[in-house]
Amino acid sequence: MNVSTLATRRRIGPREFDFAREIAVMAIVNRTPDSFYDRGSTDSLDAAVAAARRAIDEGADWIDIGGAKFAPGPPIPVADEVDRVVPIIAALADSGAVLSVDTFHAEVARAAIAAGAHVVNDTTGLRDPAMADVVAETGAAVIVTHSLAAPRTPYPSPRYGDVVTEVVAFLRERVAFAEARGVASDRIIVDPGHDLNKHTLDSLELTRRLDEVTALGHPTLVALSNKDFVGESLGRPREQRVEGSIAAAAYCVMRGARIVRVHNVRETVDAMRMIGAIEGWREPVFLEHNR
């Protein structure tokens, strides 16, 4: 596994990662009534904080907190999104985990960073230039994701000539844009955006050729967990995609991904730690067999 030297050592919030030999597990906590996977089970503040702390206990390095999903639907007022995410971030400020806010609104990002968030996870690829300015001004890190549609807007039947080539070109251009607005290169993470304005064959192609994304030289995040390309590949409903999601995450890690965004934390943590043991990045917890 070749990982660019640019992408190896990073301090993100309270954590230092050596991405040459570490995989960060990012747990998803959505405080929304219409979230993709949990269907609103963490919509209340207490439930969201409890879910985050449970994920940390299960080994998550990172908590990604969202108050408005990217998928089509009516707009969420910025004030409402702030009210959803900021109290969770404030409650977790002493957790020792990396905290990111999943938002495409610069005002939400600024409020979240003031409350203790370390990273902005922008699924629009910095569509709003003000988002890059907030990241640059605050010194936060940013996840630059490939997508085509405006937030909450349908984009039926997306078509690509070569999806990987086009995604890589988009990410390269948006990274250059962020740097031109003053975002430090070592604060940038990229995400190819599996299933975001892509159909299943696109997402499979991105997975198969992920090394072309990681070759950009920035830490690569993959958000695969329980997505439709997993379900369609296996013929499984949303609640039966854990194994397929972990297989896809492991495949991506072997091609250079270093951050995996997941719903099923304990299972994914074990899978990533097993990869680490096989690669010699970490020692087994104990040694008894045939000793």
Score class of each variant (00 low, 15 high):
D128Q: 09
R10E: 07
N121E: 10
S203M: 03
V134S: 08
I88S: 06
L234G: 10
A48L: 03
D102K: 08
A55S: 13
L6G: 15
E239R: 04
H199R: 10
R261M: 07
A180G: 15
A71G: 10
V3I: 14
E58H: 08
A97L: 09
D186C: 05
R159W: 07
T42Y: 09
E179N: 11
A27H: 06
L171T: 12
N290M: 09
A91R: 03
R187I: 01
A130Q: 02
R174I: 13
V29P: 08
H218R: 15
M26S: 00
Y37Q: 06
S245L: 04
G96D: 08
I28P: 00
D191V: 10
Y160N: 08
G67V: 01
G13P: 12
N226H: 09
H218A: 07
R241H: 02
D270W: 09
R54C: 03
L210D: 04
D57R: 14
N197K: 02
A20M: 08
L196E: 05
D57M: 09
P74N: 04
A140H: 01
P219W: 10
R282V: 12
A93Y: 11
L287A: 14
L204Y: 01
F177E: 02
V134Q: 12
I56V: 13
G59A: 14
I246G: 06
